[in-house]
Nucleic acid binder design. Structure first.
Length: 562
RNA sequence: GGUGACGUGGCCAAGUGGUUAAGGCGAGGGUCUGCAAAACCCUUAUUCGGCGGUUCGAAUCCGCCCGUCACCUCCA
């Protein structure tokens, strides 16, 4: 109960951005003074506990280790970036400005291999799969980073940082032109992953390189082997080691210290441990990162239920077998927003075993939210029209203003006072409060989704009880309901419209045919000719994939994806 | 072997010291409907891997045991 959930600072929408001289502008100051921002709590891998989120300043600086574009992005990637996108969106929803950077490791052994595999230049392979990344992430509503950084575009900066580390005695050049970071020069090494020196030496599968002064030392710069891409450097032709590119890109885009660093939990060691060593050694600023935010792995279930006890789950990238985002969405049975909801259905830090059954369950869940929204919108239009008609009737003899409205109220005092609307209003507020409380607690998206369930149920209660005579309060209530639903869903990036399906608009001729059939069916129903009505409904279903619903306000139809 | 995490209903998953253990899917019953669809209502864990302990009180804290997962492999 630490926070009083104030009305969240909403992102200014396009409509309102035109003139906002009263609001302090984005630059440095947040919309709300720092001290007044709500207390968000974030689990920090480094301390192993949830901590109050206190950013260094504004905007909140966030960096996420991106991917090596060597293949089609899979569901593990989808989860990682959906989670970090959700963090970013939610921070914005809570009134924080953010600056979000994400990299592509576009040169690496695996990329060289991908190029060979496909008979194209490594750079072309990298570009191809970078495009796949944007395509797929766009579909699950992951917003592009404020800036994407590419290793191949940071070579000079990387060389600069490597040289700096050498100059400060944290790195050394060996014969052959490789440069290693000296782990013993950084006493705090191991603080993120909780490993001490012995632990790293005893069981570790480190292949000792005789040129290393210490077995834990790692490469900052690797000399080029024949046929490999290379760049000139003070130490000869070569390319950056792993790790150093992230330290460099953070430094050059966000500065010496940042608020949030995200990535998969598999990167804790050695990648992030090494990043800390490099960055803090170079800048002498501690800590390099305020909050380490690691997302759990997504793995595939065992193939054979029989051998289920044998523990056969395999992390996607490890098993060599993975499910791509594209393949999941290909059939059209899984709306992209529902996939995102599935990926957010479990806490981000937990490992998630992929389950098609649960994914399909989430599709139903998401469809229910979408249905709630669509119904509320439909009734809103109906109610508004109804009111307008009433007013028109009243207008002639009364010569105008407010007559119709007044009359409706006078005839239906119970509706006019809006008891149901007041109840709904409270329920909307409760849903928002629950949602925010859940998300404030280390981004508990699972709980947040249940707040959406509850919200949808309460809205359904309201819409199913709307009578024949709507009032202005009805319209207002429906507007508020849709706005709240959109507000909360958007805060975590879940769209409530399947924009891909909606995009496939029917041509006018087909639409006209469908509507003609529906009109025929309405006539048949009026005649109580049920067999004819059913025949038409079946025809619509079979031939046009149209699902028909008879509502008190008339027939409603939609086209199914398949 | 070392490091970190976890084990909650048929499936998934919140909750981590205190009135009735969220939510989704599934299942059963009902309301509405000409029939559907959708929606709504009710039911579905005396119990939180096992055994001990701390406590007035534990799924929640401690110990042991059993089981699972991730990392120590330039894999997100």
């Amino acid at each position: 109960m630490a926070t009083t959930p104030t009305t969240p600072a909403k992102k200014s929408t396009k409509a309102t951005t035109a003139k906002q001289s009263t609001q302090p502008q984005e630059s440095a100051a947040p919309a709300t003074p720092l001290a007044q921002l709500p207390q968000l709590r974030i689990y920090n891998t480094e301390t192993h506990e949830e901590e109050p989120f206190v950013p260094l300043g504004f905007p909140v600086k966030m960096y996420v280790c991106g991917l090596t574009p060597k293949n089609e992005p899979h569901l593990g990637h989808a989860r990682l970036f959906a989670v970090n996108d959700t963090v970013r969106r939610y921070l914005e929803y809570r009134g924080y400005k953010t600056r979000y950077i994400q990299n592509f490791t576009d040169i690496d052994d695996k990329i060289i291999a991908a190029g060979l595999r496909e008979g194209i230049a490594p750079s072309l392979a990298a570009r191809r799969y970078t495009e796949s990344y944007f395509r797929d992430m766009g579909r699950i509503n992951v917003q592009p980073a404020d800036e994407f950084t590419y290793v191949t575009e940071f070579i000079p900066q990387i060389i600069e940082v490597v040289q700096g580390l050498i100059d400060k005695g944290h790195a050394y050049v060996v014969e052959g032109g490789d440069v290693f970071f000296s782990v013993p020069s950084f006493p705090a090494y191991g603080r993120l992953s909780g490993r001490d020196e012995d632990a790293m030496l005893v069981g570790a599968r480190i292949e000792p390189d005789e040129r290393k002064h210490d077995p834990r030392d790692f490469a900052l710069w690797k000399s080029a082997k024949p046929g490999e891409p290379w760049w000139e450097s003070p130490w000869g032709r070569g390319r950056p080691g792993w790790h150093i590119e992230c330290s460099t890109m953070v430094l050059k885009t966000l500065g010496e210290q940042i608020d949030i660093h995200g990535g998969g939990s598999d990167l804790i060691f050695p990648h992030h441990e090494n990043e800390i060593a490099q960055s803090e050694s170079y800048t002498d600023k501690v800590p390099f990162v305020r909050y380490w935010l690691h997302t759990g792995m997504l793995s595939l279930p065992t193939k054979s239920e029989a051998a289920a006890s044998e523990s056969e789950q395999q992390k996607m990238a490890h098993s060599g077998e993975f499910i791509t985002i594209r393949s999941v969405l290909a059939s059209g049975e899984i709306p992209a927003p529902a996939l995102r909801a599935y990926l957010l259905g479990q806490h981000y830090r937990a490992n998630l075993v992929y389950s098609e059954e649960q994914l399909r369950a989430t599709v139903k869940r998401w469809r229910a939210w979408a249905e709630t929204r669509a119904t509320a919108l439909r009734l809103r239009e109906w109610a508004a029209q109804r009111l307008a008609d009433t007013q028109d009737e009243a207008a002639p003899q009364a010569n105008g203003k407010g007559r119709g409205r007044k009359r409706a109220g006078a005839e239906n005092p119970s509706l006019a006072c809006g008891e149901r609307e007041n109840t709904l209003r409270q329920q909307l507020a409760t849903a928002r409060t629950d949602f925010i409380a859940a998300m404030d607690d280390d981004f508990n998206t699972s709980l947040a989704l249940s707040a959406l369930d509850e919200l949808a149920h309460r809205i359904n209660d309201y819409t199913s009880g709307i009578g024949e005579t709507p009032t202005p309060a009805t319209v207002k209530a429906l507007d508020d309901a849709v706005a709240t639903l959109d507000e909360l869903a958007n805060a975590i990036g879940i769209e409530l419209v399947d924009s891909e399906a909606a995009g496939k608009t029917l041509d006018d001729a087909t639409r006209a045919q469908i509507e003609a059939l529906i009109a025929q069916r309405e006539e048949a129903r009026a005649r109580r000719d049920w067999s004819e009505a059913d025949r038409i409904r079946k025809a619509l279903n079979d031939e046009y994939r149209v699902t028909l619903k008879d509502t008190p306000q008339g027939a409603v139809w939609s086209v199914r994806e398949e």
